[in-house]
């Protein structure tokens, strides 16, 4: 049986990749995917804990996370499409009107 720490390390690495992706990427789609990676890293950790403790509540949480991720994807993609329509670009550095 795979020990819990393996799962957690994988989850941490995935989350770190997600964070770095959000921080360095300029493409809105890539940022979006990086966020999904972060969410899935968390889901992985939850499932691992659930398995370890023999309790289903972690898995229930994962379903919740997936639902939210789906909703977020719908809204986020819609925003990206609108931005793309008006600016012919999805570079987030060009979307900087809201500033001083």
């Amino acid at each position: 049986m795979v020990p819990l720490s393996y799962y957690l390390i994988l989850s941490g690495v995935l989350f770190g990749i997600g964070v770095i992706g959000v921080l360095i990427s300029r493409n809105a789609i890539v940022i979006f995917m990086a966020i999904e990676v972060m969410l899935n890293a968390v889901s992985l950790a939850l499932v691992a804990f659930s398995q370890q403790m023999g309790s289903p509540s972690g898995q229930v949480f994962v379903f919740l996370v997936m639902t939210i991720a789906a909703a977020e994807a719908a809204v986020g993609l819609a925003i990206i499409i609108v931005i793309h329509r008006s600016r012919e670009s999805i570079n987030v550095d060009e979307v900087n009107l809201m500033k001083w």
Partner: peptide, 17 residues
């Protein structure tokens, strides 16, 4: 202090992180 509002998404994300 309004200079903090750069308008760049990645600045905000960084400060969040």
């Amino acid at each position: 202090f309004r200079k903090v509002q750069t308008g760049y998404f990645r600045n905000y994300a960084l400060s969040l992180a």
